[in-house]
């Protein structure tokens, strides 16, 4: 039987990685849906849909990995983790998810204003 995966607490690196990816995919999706799609429909102009659509698609794969790691480390229940992962495909939802998760992180780990954390495990 494989050893169970030990989840480490979330730290600032994971938080930052998640926030960067959340904002990037959110902005690309907003451009895609509110600029690219209207141009495609009314102007038959495809270049934004081609470039931004492809970028959003593959960045969303990275977002999935980063958000999965972050939500697991934050001990987000599975039924909330699924909407957070899917939020990257609905305009504006990734930004809402980012706000909620950052608040949860601050509740659990403390805000950035706090001093640098001591080593995770104290010496005996």
């Amino acid at each position: 039987m494989a050893a169970p995966f030990q989840l480490k607490p979330a730290d600032r690196r994971v938080l930052l990685r998640y926030r960067v990816l959340a904002y990037t995919t959110a902005v690309l999706l907003i451009i895609l849906v509110f600029v690219g799609v209207p141009l495609q429909i009314w102007d038959n102009n495809l270049w934004i849909v081609r470039i931004v659509g492809t970028m959003h698609g593959y960045l969303y794969l990275v977002y999935l990995v980063v958000a999965f790691e972050f939500t697991r480390r934050l001990r987000v229940p599975l039924l909330w983790m699924i909407p957070v992962l899917l939020a990257g495909t609905v305009p504006f939802c990734a930004i809402v998810a980012e706000r909620l998760l950052t608040r949860r992180y601050e509740r659990m780990v403390g805000s950035d204003a706090q001093p640098e954390m001591a080593p995770a495990v104290p010496q005996p």
């Binding site: 989840l7 607490p9 697991r72 001990r75 780990v109 954390m117 995770a120 495990v121 104290p122």
Partner: peptide, 21 residues
């Protein structure tokens, strides 16, 4: 995932480790 690190148990474990740290 190790069930001891999940949910409320996981949060408690994490808090305790951080308090110790």
């Amino acid at each position: 995932d190790d069930p001891e690190t999940l949910g409320a148990r996981g949060v408690r474990q994490q808090r305790a480790l951080q308090a110790l740290a």
